[in-house]
Design a protein around this nucleic acid. Structure first.
Lengths: 229, 229
DNA sequence: AGGAGTTGCTAAGAAGGCGTCAAGCTTGAA
DNA sequence: TTCAAGCTTGACGCCTTCTTAGCAACTCCT
């Protein structure tokens, strides 16, 4: 399960560096941009769950950037500024920002505001909920998978197994590891379970179950989820 | 579409009065409470879209109140305090508040933060008096439902359950979430309740209770309210 | 080539989720 | 105090899912 992606937008390289290390230490994925134009570009390319946006930047202002992004996205936005006037705050919030912080600020507060903002994200936009893999779309909240064009309903164990494999793509996972992760720490020898369930998953997910594209056998080791580049 | 309802919780009658007039002037509906206990009671009775919650109150603290309400509701919460320490802010935000303001504050900023918080609310809950779904008409203020041609009387729990499901249409709601939202934060394992009440709702609302159109089971997950189209 | 171990596949029995009903219990109004 | 409405609890049957067993196909080793 991947973590939230945060886009940091600030023209000051030192602030970008500090934020990056702070956020990565918390387990977030971090992308950054030096100005509004770069930010828009990043938004088009990558999935982004939250934006930390400096108000005062050369070129397109933070407010403009915010308004533009908000007009086409539900991403969470926290604005930063050195100025602490009420008019600024009102302007930022009305431009679509979810929150507003004045520099300097302590990282505990920033992190708390980030947690609060991410909590509010609609489930559909937050990248935590669905993952696209090849021609499959895996939805973690409904525990359903769209394989090719059709909806597939997986049983709890089937889904847990798939989820674990997808979380570690292109790496052979030993039988024991899979069993312990999906069935619990007391399991590890019951390789029969894996044979049955991998078989079911292939029948439900693979176009040609006898020549699997994703759920590959690693003989004498375990199974591997193949993520085509 | 009626306006948003805001619940103001503060022990200081003067602050309640000031907030009330400010908010009403903006076209919001205002309810108030003097302490955490009263707030919980109001939340049970009325629809509330946003909570303005003082941190420092006699009896149950603002933080406790916030945590309790958040555990069973998606309402927007803005916390107020006279203290401006970082620890306080972090505590408030992690207790489930969406935003935090230190007194004294100007009303433009408060209003901007209210607009920002309301913008984030799921559209369905904010302000709708009645919802028409297929051949059903659900009235949230009278707590009555018209299914087909006839008035249906729902019990309090039945209505609460329906209301929560309708407020999150087309999304599977886990058993635990439903139980905590309808029965309270101490519930979560009592899946039998759901079986019984969903069954009752289907008998009262669905044309063909054994082949439901609206109240669908999401096997191994929970239930989903199906809003056609 | 033959045996031992591994994997793919199928199907039957066991376990558990869900729908349904009805009887006890609680609570508040008369 | 009594009564009725509504909530809680238990029982039962149906159905899905998990576990288990069996066999064929295959690989590795001698």
């Amino acid at each position: 399960m991947s973590s939230a992606r945060i886009l940091v937008v600030d023209d000051d390289p030192q602030i970008r560096r500090v934020l990056r290390t702070t956020l990565i230490a918390q387990g977030y994925e971090v992308v950054d941009a030096r100005n509004g134009e770069e930010a828009l570009e990043r938004m088009r390319g990558d999935r982004v769950d939250l934006l930390i946006l400096d108000m005062n930047m050369p070129g397109m202002s933070g407010i403009e950037t915010c308004r533009l992004i908000r007009s086409s996205s539900d991403v969470a936005i926290i604005m930063l500024t050195v100025r602490d006037t009420e008019a600024d705050k009102v302007e930022a919030l009305d431009a679509g920002a979810d929150d507003y912080m004045t520099k300097p600020f302590g990282s505990p507060e920033l992190l708390a505001r980030i947690r609060a903002a991410l909590r509010r994200l609609p489930q559909t936009t937050s990248g935590l909920q669905t993952v696209r893999v090849g021609d499959m779309e895996i939805n973690f909240s409904t525990r359903r998978v769209i394989a090719g064009t059709r909806q597939v309903r997986l049983t709890p164990k089937e889904f847990d197994l798939l989820q674990y494999l997808v979380a570690h793509p292109n790496v052979p996972i030993p039988h024991t590891k899979l069993l312990q992760s999906v069935w619990g720490p007391d399991y590890g020898d019951e390789v029969e379970y894996l044979r049955v369930f991998i078989n079911q998953l292939r029948k439900k997910l693979e176009k040609n179950p006898s020549d699997p594209k994703y759920l590959l056998t690693e003989p004498w080791v375990g199974y591997r989820f193949n993520l085509p580049q």
